[in-house]
Simulated scan of single mutants.
Amino acid sequence: MNQPVPSRSLDAGALKALAHPLRVRIFDLLSERGPQTASTLAGLVGESSGSMSYHLRALAAHDLIREVDGRGTARERWWERPRGRIDLPGPDDSMTPSNRAAAQIVTSEFFRLRHESLMAYLNRSEVGVPEEWRDAGIVMTSHVDVTAEQMGEIRDEIRDVVDRVIERYRGQTGPGIRRVALRAELFDLPVTADGDE
């Protein structure tokens, strides 16, 4: 029987540690590409290994990433993002001003990177993309009229489907395997001035 996917809500310290565009990028790269060293990450983002090591230690101090057990040397350490979902708190009026600013930085940067990767996928040339991968994805937007309670039920159903898929395919390796981004969005649209949705 599959165990539930672990979930972590970021506390104020972890949120502030992540509230730097480069750290969000590092966190995202470790999620996307798996374990990396400071050198490989530095090459991916165009930073020095020394700068990268500093940011890696800051993330590790708040358990956002960790050193990979049994891999690497004293000179070259491997880092990974722990398994599980991270629930990012959005900016909230009840937060302190500094926590609100940190939440805004983290949320904005995550969604900027998310949009950037989606646009790269949509605009990529098919040259070099194996034929079986060319039409394998889906990008769709639909609109539906629901109550807040129904929206919560839909959210839970989507989360359950995503969790099952993650558990089913986690850790697969071999020919024909590629890492894919699995995204789900569900949000209410603004109310118009006359009160109509």
Rank of each mutant, 00 (worst) to 15 (best):
Thr192Gly: 02
Met140Ala: 15
Ser125Asn: 03
Leu56Phe: 08
Val146His: 06
Val129Lys: 06
Gly174Tyr: 08
Gly171Pro: 11
Ser108Phe: 07
Ile166Ser: 06
Leu64Thr: 00
Asp145Phe: 15
Arg83Ile: 05
Phe110Lys: 02
Arg8Ile: 00
Leu122Val: 07
Glu153Cys: 13
Asn123Glu: 13
Ala42Phe: 09
Ala181Gln: 04
Pro89Glu: 08
Met1Asp: 03
Gly152Trp: 14
Ser7Arg: 00
Arg114Asn: 00
Arg83Gln: 03
Asp188Ser: 12
Val127Gln: 09
Gly13Gln: 10
Arg25Asn: 06
Ile138His: 11
Ile65Ala: 00
Asp156Arg: 13
Thr40Phe: 07
Glu116Phe: 04
Leu22Asp: 06
Ala101Arg: 15
His62Tyr: 05
Tyr121Cys: 04
Arg164His: 14
Gln36Phe: 13
Val165Leu: 13
Val165Phe: 10
Pro89Asn: 07
Ile154Gly: 15
Arg83Ser: 05
Leu122Gln: 07
Ser31Asn: 12
His62Gly: 04
Val129Thr: 05
Ala17Leu: 02
Arg179Ala: 11
Ala12Asp: 09
Arg8Pro: 02
Ala193Thr: 04
Glu116Ser: 07
Glu126Phe: 08
Arg183Pro: 04
Leu59Arg: 01
Asn99Ser: 15
Glu132Gln: 13
Glu126Ala: 06
Val146Lys: 06
Ala12Thr: 06
Gly43His: 10
Asp28Thr: 07
Met95Gln: 15
Leu118Cys: 09
Asp196Ala: 04
Ala103Asp: 05
Val165Glu: 06
Gly72Lys: 09
Phe110His: 01
Asn99Gln: 13
Ala103Lys: 01
Ala14Asn: 03
Ala181Lys: 11
Arg57Leu: 10
Leu30Ala: 04
Val45Cys: 14
Arg81Ala: 03
Ala184Thr: 10
Asp93Pro: 11
Val139Trp: 14
Ser53Asn: 08
Ile158Leu: 15
Arg23Lys: 05
Val5His: 02
Pro89His: 02
Val162Thr: 12
Gly84Val: 15
Gly195Gln: 08
Val68Asn: 13
Gly50Met: 02
Gln36Trp: 04
Tyr121Met: 08
Arg112Tyr: 02
Ile86Val: 01
Gly46Phe: 02
Glu185Cys: 13
Gly50Glu: 10
Ala184Gly: 13
Ile166Met: 08
His115Lys: 02
Glu126Asp: 06
Asp163Phe: 09
Ile177Cys: 14
Ile65Thr: 00
Tyr54Arg: 10
Asp160Ala: 14
Leu64Asn: 00
Asp28Ile: 02
Leu44Met: 15
Glu132Met: 09
Arg81Tyr: 05
Gly13Asn: 11
Glu109Ser: 00
Gly72Pro: 15
Pro130Val: 09
Thr107Leu: 02
Gly43Gln: 09
Thr173Val: 11
Val180Met: 11
Asp163Ala: 10
Met52Ile: 08
Leu118Trp: 01
Val144Lys: 14
Val127Pro: 05
Val180Gln: 14
Glu80Cys: 14
Leu29Val: 03
Val165Arg: 09
Glu126Met: 08
Leu30Asp: 01
Tyr54Cys: 07
Arg33Asp: 13
